[in-house]
C-alpha cells in the first residue's frame, strides 16, 4: 500500500508514497533538471528549474510528492522553454564569466545551459556590482556567481549543525550573507558540507583552481543528468 504508480512523459514509474516526484524520477532513471535541490537536503522549491506539469498544473518536482495515477510531463517544449528562461535569467542577473571561472566543467548552471542548448544569453546583462570575500584562509565566497539557490544555507544548518549563511533583503536585492562581517569571522571550515554543495563557483575552496585539466572535468564528456539517465537504461 506504500507504493504508488504514476507516469512521467508516458513512462510508468513506481514510487514510495510520500516521495517527491524528483526523487522518484531519479530512482527511475528519469532526469528532471534542478539547481536548488541537492541530494538529501530539505528541498525548498525556490529555483523552479525542476518545474513539471502534474495533471496539467505546473509544480516544482523537488517539493511535490507523488500521487497514484498522476500524469507528469517533464520533457516538453513548453517546459524546456521555461527552464531555459530561468537559466538565461540567472546568467544575466549575476556576473558569470565561464571562460575563466575555475568551476567551468563542474558548474551545474553551465552544464544545464549546455544541456538546454543555450549558446548565448537572450536578455541584457545586468552586470551587478558584487563583492568577493577572500578573508577566510581556506574558502572564498564570490557573490558575482551566487544564484541564491540556498544549498549552502541549508547544508550549513542541516548537515554541519552551524548557521554560517542566511539570505538578507528581498526581491532583486536579495543576497547571501554570512554570520559575521566576513567569512573569516564565521566558524566555517573548508571541510564543511556547505562548501561542497555549491552548484556554481560562488563558494569554493581556495587554491584548488584548475587542478583538473580540460577534458577530464565532470561535464566535459557527459551532460548533466547522464548519471541518472544511465540508471534508467539499466
Amino acid at each position: 500500500m506504500n507504493r504508488v504508480t504514476f507516469t512521467i512523459d508516458g513512462k510508468e514509474v513506481k514510487a514510495i508514497r510520500g516521495q517527491t516526484i524528483l526523487k522518484a524520477a531519479d530512482a527511475a532513471g528519469v532526469f528532471i533538471p534542478r539547481l536548488c535541490a541537492y541530494r538529501d537536503l530539505t528541498p525548498n522549491g525556490s529555483c523552479r528549474v525542476c518545474s513539471v506539469r502534474v495533471n496539467g498544473r505546473i509544480q516544482a518536482a523537488c517539493v511535490q510528492t507523488v500521487a497514484e495515477g498522476a500524469i507528469v510531463e517533464n520533457e516538453t517544449p513548453e517546459l524546456l522553454e521555461y527552464r531555459r528562461n530561468i537559466v538565461d535569467m540567472l546568467f544575466v542577473e549575476g556576473n558569470h564569466f565561464c571562460m575563466f571561472c575555475e568551476k567551468s566543467g563542474f558548474c551545474e548552471l553551465q552544464a544545464l545551459a549546455y544541456r538546454f542548448g543555450i549558446k548565448a544569453p537572450r536578455y541584457p546583462f545586468l552586470y551587478p556590482k558584487r563583492d568577493l570575500d577572500m578573508s577566510h584562509p581556506h574558502v572564498f565566497l564570490d557573490h558575482n556567481r551566487c544564484i541564491l539557490c540556498g544549498r549552502c544555507v541549508r547544508a550549513s544548518q542541516d548537515m554541519d549543525g552551524k548557521n554560517v549563511f542566511q539570505f538578507v533583503e528581498r526581491g532583486g536585492r536579495k543576497r547571501l550573507q554570512v554570520n559575521g562581517d566576513s567569512l573569516s569571522e564565521t566558524d566555517l571550515k573548508a571541510t564543511d558540507e556547505a562548501v561542497s554543495v555549491c552548484p556554481v563557483g560562488a563558494l569554493m575552496k581556495k587554491r584548488v583552481g584548475y587542478e583538473v585539466p580540460v577534458g577530464r572535468r565532470r561535464y566535459d564528456e557527459k551532460p548533466i543528468g547522464d548519471d541518472i539517465e544511465m540508471k534508467g537504461e539499466k
Binding site: 575563466f100 575555475e102 568577493l132 572564498f140 581556495k206 587554491r207 584548488v208 583552481g209 584548475y210
Partner: peptide, 9 residues
C-alpha cells in the same frame, strides 16, 4: 581583488 590562481587563465 581576484584570486591569484585565476590570473593565468
Amino acid at each position: 581583488g581576484r584570486p591569484f590562481w585565476e590570473v593565468p587563465v
